[in-house]
Structure formats: structure tokens, C-alpha cells
Design a protein around this nucleic acid. Sequence first.
DNA 1: CTGAAAGCGCTTACAG
DNA 2: CTGAAAGCGCTTACAG
Lengths: 348, 348
Amino acid sequence: MPARTVGIKDVAAAAGVSVTTVSHVLNDVPHTRTSEETKERIRTAAEALGYRPNRLARGLRTRTSEMVGLVTEEIATTPYAGQIILGAQEAATSRNLALAIINASLNRELEVGPEEIRSLLERHVDGIIYATVFHDEVVPPAEMRKSPSVLIGARDATGEIPSVVPDERAGAASVVDMLAGRGHRRIAFLASSVDVPATRGRAVGYAEAMASAGLDTSGLIVEGDSEAGGGYAAALAVLNRPKDVRPTAVFCYNDRMAMGAYRAVAELGLRIPDDVSIVGFDDQAPLPRSLFPALTTVALPHYDMGAWALNTLADQIAGHAENRLLASHPTLLACPIVAGDSVSAPRA
Amino acid sequence: MPARTVGIKDVAAAAGVSVTTVSHVLNDVPHTRTSEETKERIRTAAEALGYRPNRLARGLRTRTSEMVGLVTEEIATTPYAGQIILGAQEAATSRNLALAIINASLNRELEVGPEEIRSLLERHVDGIIYATVFHDEVVPPAEMRKSPSVLIGARDATGEIPSVVPDERAGAASVVDMLAGRGHRRIAFLASSVDVPATRGRAVGYAEAMASAGLDTSGLIVEGDSEAGGGYAAALAVLNRPKDVRPTAVFCYNDRMAMGAYRAVAELGLRIPDDVSIVGFDDQAPLPRSLFPALTTVALPHYDMGAWALNTLADQIAGHAENRLLASHPTLLACPIVAGDSVSAPRA
DNA sequence: CTGAAAGCGCTTACAG
DNA sequence: CTGAAAGCGCTTACAG
């Protein structure tokens, strides 16, 4: 049992005023014409006594906990869950909210688990952020729809909850634009055979950007599994051609495939970026900077999504919500290119 | 404002008993001889009404929040912070505690930040776990010493707080033992030039195990910076020798250096593991499995440390603490070898 | 505008 | 053993 801490009563006694006044002054309640002098006396007393308001008591009274819950699916296996947490946490700190984190197992049925939500609700969190992986859309449990909430990484099938996802398509398109801008014409794409939203988004972004740049993709798309081994095999297939039809740039579905592509390039006796430029996706540390030359890749906006989710949630809680507007379509966050040394203009 | 939820009074009314009885029954208070029948009636009523006790109210009354705080330094840059969180979180769930997470910036002055602790204390957490990186020992703020607390990754300089750290030394020694057991005699070590506890622990473990295996280390220890580039240079230096004096195995300070070593091996026209075995340290995803052949490495017990910390903390809170005993020395957790395909017996 | 008092939803001595 | 009542530390109508 921690020792009895100093309460608002102690401050009131020390300052010679009522607890009401202390509460008003410390919480900056407007329209209270307490003299500056008294206010100062109260603040000094609070400071001297080391007074810290008991948030539990306040929460009980105001029916608010100033705490929000963050449920992350498979935090352990998602490389960047840490960045989502960090983004949410820093935003939470700046809005004076605490963040309770809870892990949920990945749910193949595309339904988020109600147990985690219930546990959070029992603690009277003011709102909930649910971060999913690998889903296009999910059906949130009823509990979640009743309180302020935000989805990261998936759209709400019922269209009620705002969500935020990476703009994979634009990210992929920007890679093609960048390569085409450097003068590349034969840009290969190592596609993933794993059926997740990112697979489609990146493939579509590549195809669209190639089309609008007037570039042909025939024979330039090779599919492989999304690990280094798959990238190795796919890169070998697409690069083992005579120089005049060989791609001058290879855009890989992700960094792990790019790592395999590096090996294929080396085995074929080619050099990066002189003979072929390589671009990855994910910015999955520590890969890009551990490769030689450092891999040019595309970062996922994990930190930004975490921050966006928390701010959107805090706005909902504060009441100035335009939920419907936000919920109708997922908010897309940009995936910026992270420059390494694996891209150059094609050799003449 | 969430709608008025069902409270203990509602349950009492529905079951026709007093709130005292409801509280007793639902909390399994011993020595209460309420009839089984009444108990059942209360439980049924609670269930039917969907009653969930308000933890804020309970916390206010019992001066306990059933919530513990986890402060992580640089969660974003520590690859495995997610595993620490997961370990702590799963243990917390099984002990019916919530976990509030808060990030702290890395503190070079070897003192943990009091602000984070204060913020947690204001929310009346029952205890605090502070996970540090890169420190031998830290001086925890006074606030932390006053309430139950546990340190991950560093020893408490004042010897009051229990702590848990990876047994880097034994992990490194086990690698040498394993390689020596396979018949290797010339085992090189790519040491890190960065001065952190892990650097010393792994170097000492290597040296001790080599000595007790009766193996010579002269000319076999090369220092480099702890990235792929440093590993590349160091591996080149130690492997570019005539076959009869060339190491048959290279133990790298970490996986990133091992990645550089792979490149050096390839440039020298050698093969892994036929010509040289390579072992890393950290099990830093996705490196070990993205390399070809898959890297044999040593895992850090992040999950276990998180779980150990939470359980130790929960024990302290529950009162059966043997803090002094635990605090006198950091608890060492084993770093298991994770087998890949980069080790074989030396070629005849 | 200020202060006395009620009340948030629980737990727990205490009297019956 | 059971229930009425006090009280955890706040905030906030409400009366003065």
C-alpha cells in the first residue's frame, strides 16, 4: 500500500481556500474571477506539496479515463508495430492521454476479437485504436462501434469507423515515375504471390505508372514468394537475358525479395546500380542499409498512421467528430521513397 | 459521454440482495457463507445485465489500479522492443493487469528519466518496469524506488531494484563450444568497436570458451564497427589468408556484421559453410533467414525478459517479494542458439 | 463569483 | 454471517 498521498484537500488547507477553488484554478476553469494573487498562492501550495491529481478519482467523477486503448494484431511479428505504437504514444502524450496496449492474435476470419475490446472497455478507456495487418476490411465488434474508435491498416466493412492505410499504390507508382524520370524504359516488377492488400496495391501502382509513362510491361512482371528466395528466383528469371532486352531496373515487391535480387545480380556478374538498378519496398530495418550498395526503398508510414489514428480518436472523444466523413473512405498516407545507392540512370 | 452503464447496485436490486453481498460473491471473498443458491442468483443477474465492475471505482477505493507501467527507451529503434512488450503483456493479461506503455528517449547520462515515471505514478500504476538499452547500470529516480519496480537490460546502481539482462557471455561461449564440438580449431571473432555491455559480454564469452577449449586466439580477433560494412572489412582481413592458417569459422558480434562477412566470403570465392562457417548474434529479423544460406545465430531473450519482469513485479505488488535477494545481482536469461545452415564441420 | 455538499461506483470496517 | 453506511479523491451543480 503506497503511503497516503497529498490530495486536493491538503492543497486547499495550505492555501486557505476551498477545494472547489483549487479545482477551478488548477483546471483553468473559465469565468472564475479568482484573484491572480490567490491563484498564485494555490499553485505555489500545490507545487510545494508535490500535489498530483489522482486521475482515477477524476475519471470516476467525469466518467472519463483519459486513457485510450491500442490493440495491435501480432505485434511481435509485424516489424514496424513499434513505430505505430511510438506514433500513437507521442501523440497521446501531447494530448495528455495514456496509452494502454494490448496484443491480439491475428485473426484470419477478418473479424477483430471482442475479448480484447471488452477488457479495455472494463477499464473505461475513452476510445480504441485497433491496428490490423493484412486485411482489406474487417467487421469490428459491436462494442467497438459504440465508443470512439479508429482502425489502422484496414477499412471498416460497415463504414462507421474511420481508418487509415498506407497508399501502397501511389508509393509504387512513384518508384516507376522516379525510375522513368532517370531514363529507364525496361522496368521489371518482382510481384508477390501472397494475396494481401499490399500485393495488389503495389502491382496496380506499378502497372498504372508504367502505362501512363508509355512503357511496355510484357515479360517484365515475374511472380515469386515474398521472401529472399522468391526474389532470387524471380530476379534470375528476369535478368538472365541478352543485354538489349534485359531490364535496366528491377522494382521488388519488398526488401526481402530485393535482398534475393542482389544475390541473383551478383551471380550473373552484374553490378548495382551500374548494370541494373534495384528498388525495394517496406524500408524494413536493418535490410536496406545492411545491403551493399544501400538499397533504395519505400517506407511505410507506420509512425504517421499511429499518430493520425490517435489524433483522429482524440478529436472524436473531444466531440468535434466528422466520423461519417472520415469513415466513408480510408485515409491514405503517403509512402515516401528512401534513397539508397542502388539506383542510377541506365548505362548507355 | 457513454451511456450510464450497469453498476453493482443494479445487480443487487436484480438479485434481491445488498451490494455488499454482490461484492463479496463476485470477488470470491472467503468466509462468506452465502448460500450456493444465492451466489448463483447473483452471478446469473450479473451475467444477464452484462455487469462489468468499474475498475476506476475499485481502484479509487482499494488504492490500486491493477495497471502497471512499462517504460521503454527508444522503442522505435530497438528491434525487439516489440518482443519485450509482448512478453510483458501476455504475462500481464494472465495476471489480470493492464499494461500502460510509455516511450522514453535514450538517456546517455545513464539515468532514467523521472518525467515518464511521474506521469505513470499520477495514474497510480501499481508498479513500473523500465526497459533500457545499452547500459551497464542506471541510477533510477527516487520515485521508482518508492514503488514496486523492475529493470530490464541494466543493473540498478543502488542495488535496490531487481533486474534482468541477457546472458551474453554464456551465449557467446555456447557458440564457441558448439563450433569446437564440430571440430573447428581456428575460430575467429569479429568484435565490435562500439562500447556497450554486449560488446564486452560477447568478447569475454568467446575468449573464455576458447581458453577452456584449449584453442589459441592470436590473430583471430578483429575489431570493426558493428554494421555490415564493419563486418565486411573485418571478415576480409581475417579470411584473406592461406588456407592452412585461415579460420574455418567466423563468429560475428552481431547479424549485421555477419551479413557483411557473407559478402567478404563471396568475394574471396569461398563458400558457406563448406569453406567457412559463419555465426551471428541477435537473431535480428529478417536478416538470418533472408541470407543464403540461412544464418546460424543467437537469440536475445526479449520475450522472456518482458515476461520475467512482469511476473517479478506482480510478485512484488502482491507482497511476497524477496527484492533484496533479486536486486543484489541481475538475473541472467539464456540466449539460445538458433540454427540456420551456415555451420558445418570444417572441411578436411 | 465562491464554498458546502452531493455523488461518481466501488470496497470494507462496523453494528446488528 | 449480512446489510447500512462511510469513504476513496476528485468535479460540479447549487445555494448563498
